[in-house]
Simulated assay, not measured.
Amino acid sequence: MDLALLRTFVTVHRAGSFTRAAALLGLSQPAVTSQIRTLERQLGRPLFLRRARGVTPTTIGDELAHKAAPHLDALVEITETGLDDESSLRTLHLAGPPEFTAERALPALTELTGDDGQPFALRASFGNAEETLEGLAAGHHDLAISTVRPRGALLTATALCDEEHVLVAAPRWTDGIGATAAPGADASTLEHVPVVEVHESLPFVSRYWASVFDSRPATSGTVIVPDLRAVLACVVAGAGLAVLPRYLCAAALERRDVVALHEPAVPPLRTYFLVARSGTLAVPHIARAHAWLSQAATSWC
């Protein structure tokens, strides 16, 4: 059986779409369709059911993917690292959200890369959950950090830690708010405070309002910057309120560069997952990095 056909098949299975698989493989959509049809003719069985939006694997398709994917990943690993284990420096490709990856994962892994035991090179890329999981499924990354637990059996997710979200602003904004520091505060007292966010949809503020105040924020974003570290910088400068992970603003809270505007009895949480392709944790340097991050995460919660 042609390994190129299997590689295309596994990519389609992971992507859930001929079009997305074609983009990941650098092929045209008709070429991907043709390769899948060729493989189906060779096997004498359909591998996918065509839907209005993408494809769904048949039982045979799922079974073939679960058997073939780990071996194809292992072959990619061999071609990337070479055959001479004594002279090859393994490279770990990590993807995740920029702030958490930069503040948490990379410092931990940088310590591990200098270990005399089994050192490896490190390459990191940033993206949202959808981008990182698609890249992982396509074989572009070895490990991914995601706030979304992937579906299916081809990606294996391990919970790393929960991040607590905090509603913060520069101290000057507490004038006239006062009561908002109480657990039962009314969100209406915050309506006059500008909002700093990472996106126009206000993902962090909206989630906090829904969880704590059981409502939607009444104002739109005044300052929109696509990085939580930039959000924190704007808040420290007095631009308005924001909802930030506690790990990111803990030092600023301690220095009173920012203050918590609300202290709910149960703060909103978001879980981070460490994700690998099924079967790749048998590769030593990936397994070692996975174990190291999992251990380091016990002190992040």
Results as ranks from 00 to 15, higher is better:
235 V>I: 09
269 L>G: 00
6 L>A: 13
231 V>F: 06
276 A>D: 06
159 A>L: 13
263 E>W: 11
250 A>I: 03
284 P>D: 10
151 R>M: 11
290 H>V: 01
148 V>I: 13
113 T>S: 10
12 V>Y: 02
200 E>L: 13
161 C>W: 12
135 G>R: 15
190 L>V: 06
159 A>K: 14
154 L>A: 11
138 A>N: 05
218 A>D: 09
152 G>E: 08
287 A>M: 06
58 T>N: 08
135 G>Q: 14
257 D>C: 03
291 A>Q: 14
253 L>C: 10
171 P>C: 08
3 L>Y: 09
280 T>V: 13
168 V>S: 00
187 A>V: 08
253 L>W: 11
190 L>R: 01
259 V>E: 10
294 S>K: 09
122 L>F: 12
141 H>E: 03
167 L>N: 02
107 P>I: 03
291 A>G: 09
113 T>H: 07
268 P>W: 05
242 A>C: 07
294 S>H: 05
283 V>G: 00
289 A>E: 02
37 R>M: 04
210 A>W: 04
120 F>R: 02
41 R>P: 03
212 V>K: 06
191 E>I: 10
14 R>E: 15
137 A>P: 07
54 G>Y: 09
269 L>W: 01
70 P>Y: 10
124 A>W: 11
61 G>Q: 02
266 V>C: 04
50 R>S: 12
43 L>M: 13
231 V>D: 00
257 D>S: 14
288 R>Y: 04
96 G>L: 06
102 A>T: 15
128 N>K: 04
65 A>T: 07
237 A>W: 03
119 P>T: 04
82 G>K: 07
48 F>C: 03
76 V>K: 05
225 V>P: 00
242 A>G: 03
240 G>K: 01
144 A>L: 08
222 T>G: 14
3 L>I: 15
